[in-house]
Amino acid sequence: MRYESPATTKEACALLAKEKGSAFVLAGGTDLLVKMKAGMLEPDLVVDIKRIKGMREIRKSASGFVIGAATPNAALSENAALLKAWPGVVEAAQLIGSKQVQGRCTMAGNLCNASPAADSVPALVAAGAKVVVAGTKGKRKLAVEDVPAGVGRTVLKRGEIIEAIELPAKKAKSGDAYLRFIPRTEMDIAVVSCAVNLSIDGKGVITAARVALGAVAPTVLLVKEAAKALIGSKLDDAAKAKLAAAASAACRPIDDKRGTVEFRTDVAGVLARRAAEIAYARAGGK
């Protein structure tokens, strides 16, 4: 194996594109090193992107936030503006692993690892986040939900890396929230998860909503029916029941060591309702 830590994105893409064997990007490494340890991966090349300028920065602009792909999740809550605008995203990102893992892991890595149970991904999808993909032939932007192609697979091509995640500016009277179910209080992989991002009008009526579910299908699901259940309501009991039913109906989970089909389906609805309540309160709804 070779270890490279290029100074520019261009160099990084060139290294990855040129490698004939297996090549991997190293940002936080909290998935990559585990897979290497288990013998699941034996890379020929690892490209560390942390020394590339801007990769570990969070920049705020009028259009929102640009988060460098190698920014450790621990840095997200240290940015007061980001935490205020997107508390659901920050909370989701900070549920990954331990404080130790937080010191290394990144949202871009979480996305590229392409696990259906990735914590930050439903929150990013609900928030309408985009990624900036750099390649040898230039850059392109993708919606976060369009990145995963299946379990452990993304749509990124050889020589492409995610350079940054873009979050839109926070709309007035909006709020987001993320909840996951785990058997313990920390250190587990989500058995099922849900993110809700919604906006309300002056009367507390929900005008826009995005609902995303994790760990209930091969990729994170953006559930339009669940959003529809919220829009036009003041999050009354009927809306909550409709939301929960829509969330459960969207689930296509599996039985595995972490949970059952029945459990995931039931709890998806519960989490959707509870996340919506938090998001609604954050938007200023009463």
């Binding site: 250190m187 587990d188 060591k257």
Partner: peptide, 16 residues
């Protein structure tokens, strides 16, 4: 054995 690790063999953590 499907859970031969501390991730999925869940011993109590401090916050539990």
């Amino acid at each position: 054995l499907q859970n031969a690790g501390f991730l999925d063999y869940r011993i109590p953590v401090c916050s539990d």
